[in-house]
Amino acid sequence: MGINLDDLLRHYRSHIFEDYQVKTPHTGVISFEVEEGQAVEGPSGRWLQRPGTLLYILEREKNAKRIYASWKGQVTGIRSELEGHFVEADELVLFIRHRLDREEIIDRILTQMLTILRAPQQARYFLSSDILAGLEKRPEARIAIGPGDEVVIMSLMKRDTPISYRGEPGVLYKVYFRSGDIVEQGSPLLGVCPSDRLQYMQKVIQRIRTDWED
């Protein structure tokens, strides 16, 4: 893994925004409901049932389709010249400039740096007794994990199946669940960090937490 953490940090510092393209889903006459620079909200609610800010209305065959923002951010590069005109499908009409916040950047770095162990199926998961005992003794301890170690126990239909770690050796950096929780299939269970990068990464995360302004 030839990732230089300084480069990574520099990259995020220089790219604190992510620009999401908003394209027309089909042809039609467009009328914008937002202006350049306007702040917009993404979908909200527990089930994302509340749509975001209305961006534009695309009318085709007397069917006025309302298009809402899918991300939180600021409207940029709006093509106001298209207002009231017919546009083709897949036409880029505006960008939503989304500013990455502290947690999003940390999440991205962690995803890149850690080896993630994911839940093979929806079940109740427990940490193995060794890890649990280690964490109970010293919560801040970094427990070493190597390939083939039984790290998690999956409990399903009265049957306990030990799950072995298959990634790069390292130390347990993050536990994404509480022992005994039901975890959905594909959700992360553990994040393991190679020992040599641990210090670097902690430093970077620490700096992000202290320096980064949301």
């Binding site: 089909h26 085709r60 065959e61 007397k62 069917n63 389709k65």
Partner: peptide, 20 residues
């Protein structure tokens, strides 16, 4: 009797085309 199209509420989920 109307000459227009409508959008299926599940269009974003299942990619339904507009309906005449």
């Amino acid at each position: 009797n109307e000459d227009r199209t409508v959008t299926c509420p599940n269009a974003s989920k299942y990619g339904c085309m507009d309906l005449w």
